[in-house]
């Protein structure tokens, strides 16, 4: 609760979105700003700063629209610049 309440526009947060299957590098453009990491268990991690909740939901909508299987969404840390 306090996480969301103190969220501020100038301080993007680092999120980690886990997708089933290995994504090609060309998806980087669609998930701009996120790093694509392929994991050994056959999953893909999209990691990077997300400016706010609205931006996060936009990313999740892309996951939905590309027919990808969403496994988890994690907040890595409050401020990537810290």
């Amino acid at each position: 609760m306090s996480e969301a309440a103190t969220e501020h526009r100038e301080h993007p947060r680092l999120y980690e979105i886990r997708i089933k299957g290995h994504l090609d590098a060309r998806w980087a453009d669609s998930f701009e700003g996120l790093t694509i990491t392929l994991e050994e268990d056959g999953c893909t991690l999209l990691t990077g700063p997300v400016i706010d909740q609205a931006a996060l939901h936009r990313l999740l909508r892309k996951v939905r629209d590309f027919g990808m299987t969403l496994l988890s969404v994690n907040l890595k840390q409050g401020n990537p610049h810290e």
Partner: peptide
Amino acid sequence: GSHRFVLDYLLE
């Protein structure tokens, strides 16, 4: 045998 996202693999 591939781990690639189904769509990536097959569309290619």
